[in-house]
Write a protein that binds this DNA or RNA. Structure first.
Lengths: 174, 174
DNA sequence: CTTGGAATGTCAACAACGCTGACTTAAAGT
DNA sequence: ACTTTAAGTCAGCGTTGTTGACATTCCAAG
C-alpha cells in the first residue's frame, strides 16, 4: 500500500489484469480528456460572456425541449438557486423562452429561441467535431468500448437520466 | 441544422457511421461519467475541508515526487496564483513539503509528507475502486477502446503531459 | 560585478458557479 | 380549508478560476 507499484489491490483477476498503474492511467486519461472535451465550447462561451453552466442548460433544453425546471434540475444535479441564476440570464438575453404550463400552470416549460438554437448549434458543432475526430482516430470498436466504460462509471441514478435522455424527445408539454 | 436528427454533418463515412445523435450521446456520456468519476473523491475531500484543486495537486505530486511548481502549473493548466493558494494550505496543513532546490535554489521541489500520502492513498483508492468496477463491467477490449478515445480527445500538448507522466517517475531532484 | 530575466511567492480584486437558508407566490391536490 | 409542490428570489458564503501589480531570490550573461 506504500508504493502501489504492482502488488496493489486487484479484483477480477480471472478476467482482467488491472494493476494500480493501469487504473491510475485511466484516471489521468479522464482528467486530460475532459479538459480537451470542454476546451472548444469554453472558447466559444467566452465570446458571449457565458460559462459552462450556461452550456449545460442550453444543451439539455435543446435535447428535451419543453422540459420543466425540476426535470432540468435533476439532470444537472445542481440547486434551484444555481440553475435559476443561469436560466435568468439566458431568458433575459433572449436565448431561452419560459412558457407557463397549460395542464399545470405552476410548471414552466423551457424552449430555445432561434438565437438560443444558434448558440447551441455553434457549441454542439464544436464539441461534436472533436468527438468525431476522436472517434475516427480510435476506430469503431474503441468507440463501443469507450461508451461501455463511461456508462459503467456513472452513478446508477445518473445513468438512468442518461438512458432516458434518448427517449425524452417525447414532449409531455401541455 | 435545425433538428440534427439524422441528416447532420458526417465525416469518415467509409469507416464509421457517426450520426449527430451518436456524437451527442458520447458527449452526454462524458458529462455523466465525469460526475461519477469525481463523486467519491469529492465526498472524501469534504471531510477534510478540501476541494478538487487540492486533489489534483496531491495526485500529481504523488505521481512525480520532487516536481517543481512550474511543472505542476503546466500539468494542471491553472495560474500560479490559483495553484499557490491550494499549495499553501497543503503545506500549512503538513500534507506537502516544499524543499528548496539544491542545483537551482529558486525552484521548490514538492513532496508529500506521510499525512499527504495517506490522504492521497484514500482518494486514489476510492477513485481506482470505481475505475476497477467500470473496467470489469465493460471488459478488457472496452478498456482499450476507452483509453484510445480519451487520448484522441486530448489537446496535443495535454497528451504530451499525459504520456510523459509515466516516465516522470524519474526524479530530477538535486 | 552589475544587470536582466526567470522562478517563485504574495496581495488585492473580481467572476463563475456551486452551496445553504429563508421566504413568497401561485396552483394543484386532498 | 389546508397542505404540498413548482418556481422564483434574496442574502450570504466557499472554492477555484482569472488579471494585474509587485517583491524576492538567484542564475547567467555582459
Amino acid at each position: 500500500m506504500a508504493d502501489g507499484k504492482a502488488g496493489g489491490t486487484q479484483s477480477g483477476e480471472a478476467l482482467l489484469f488491472l494493476t494500480d498503474e493501469q487504473l491510475r492511467k485511466g484516471i489521468e486519461a479522464m482528467f486530460f480528456a475532459y479538459r480537451g472535451f470542454t476546451a472548444d465550447p469554453d472558447r466559444i462561451l467566452e465570446k458571449y460572456g457565458y460559462g459552462r453552466a450556461h452550456h449545460r442548460a442550453v444543451h439539455f433544453i435543446a435535447r428535451a425541449p419543453g422540459t420543466n425546471v425540476n426535470n432540468l434540475l435533476a439532470i444537472l444535479g445542481v440547486t434551484k438557486q444555481s440553475l435559476n441564476r443561469v436560466l435568468r440570464t439566458l431568458i433575459e438575453d433572449g436565448l431561452v423562452e419560459s412558457r407557463v404550463g397549460v395542464q399545470d400552470k405552476r410548471e414552466r416549460h423551457l424552449y430555445l429561441t432561434e438565437t438560443g438554437q444558434s448558440l447551441e448549434a455553434e457549441l454542439s458543432e464544436a464539441q461534436r467535431a472533436r468527438m468525431r475526430v476522436a472517434y475516427r482516430d480510435a476506430g469503431h470498436e474503441a468507440v463501443a468500448g469507450f461508451r461501455r466504460v463511461l456508462e459503467a462509471m456513472m452513478d446508477p441514478d445518473q445513468a438512468a437520466y442518461f438512458h432516458a435522455m434518448s427517449k425524452t424527445l417525447s414532449k409531455k408539454e401541455e
